[in-house]
Amino acid sequence: MGTFLIILIIAFVIFMIIGATTKPPSTEKVNNNVKRKEIEINLKEFPNEYTFSVKGVHLSDYSYPIFNICKEFDLITLVPEPDNSFDSDAIKVVNSGWDIGYVPAEETYEVHQIIKKENISYIETLNISGYISVIVKIRYKN
């Protein structure tokens, strides 16, 4: 009887550990659909759009936020870096206070012109399986 009780207690502990570490069913898709609808409603006033692929997302400096913070339809901030030692036209892409990469050098002129206007920028597509990529869409007024 004592051995049976010990086995039962061990089984209960294992069950509790497995239950505590198992994630509940994902609501990510539902949450993303809600976010997307909210963004689309708010963007009716922003008829123009510009899309680019964030550069540098494969670098280790950006891996934590890319894998753990970023989600599709997160609002992002585009921050000009005139003191950047590599490119004075550089524009950093920031999500929730985390640097996630840069606007491609060949697109900084257009993006500089757009961010002077009223705009909303967000992650349109995030791919972290296989080849890592982050696509940003900027919606802006004339």
Rank of each mutant, 00 (worst) to 15 (best):
M1G: 14
M1F: 09
G2R: 10
L5E: 10
L5R: 06
L8C: 11
A11D: 06
F12G: 06
V13N: 08
F15Y: 15
F15A: 15
F15T: 14
M16I: 11
M16P: 01
M16A: 07
I17D: 05
I18K: 07
G19K: 07
A20C: 12
T21Y: 05
T27D: 15
E28G: 05
E28A: 08
K29L: 13
K29R: 08
K29Y: 09
V30G: 00
N31I: 07
N31L: 09
N33F: 02
V34F: 12
K35L: 08
R36D: 07
K37S: 13
E38S: 04
I39K: 04
I41M: 05
N42D: 09
N42H: 05
K44V: 01
E45A: 05
F46G: 00
P47K: 04
N48T: 02
N48K: 03
E49D: 06
T51L: 00
S53V: 09
V54P: 09
K55Y: 10
K55I: 00
V57T: 13
V57Q: 07
H58Y: 06
H58D: 10
L59C: 02
D61L: 08
S63P: 02
Y64P: 03
P65M: 05
I66V: 14
N68P: 09
I69T: 15
I69K: 15
K71Q: 13
K71M: 10
K71W: 08
E72T: 13
F73Y: 14
F73W: 15
F73V: 05
F73S: 10
D74R: 02
L75T: 15
I76C: 15
T77L: 15
T77E: 15
P80I: 04
E81R: 13
P82M: 10
P82C: 08
D83F: 14
N84I: 07
N84Q: 11
N84Y: 03
S85G: 04
S85Q: 14
D87V: 02
D87Y: 12
S88P: 12
S88C: 08
D89H: 14
A90I: 11
A90Q: 14
A90M: 13
V94L: 08
V94P: 06
S96V: 14
S96P: 11
S96L: 09
G97A: 06
W98E: 11
W98T: 05
D99T: 07
G101E: 08
G101Q: 06
V103C: 06
V103P: 02
V103R: 06
V103N: 06
A105V: 12
A105N: 10
A105L: 10
A105G: 06
E107P: 02
Y109T: 15
V111L: 11
V111S: 13
V111A: 05
H112T: 06
Q113E: 12
Q113W: 01
I115S: 04
N119Q: 06
I120F: 02
S121G: 08
I123D: 11
E124L: 12
E124H: 11
T125N: 13
G130M: 01
Y131V: 11
I138A: 00
R139D: 00
R139L: 00
Y140D: 01
K141Y: 00
K141F: 00
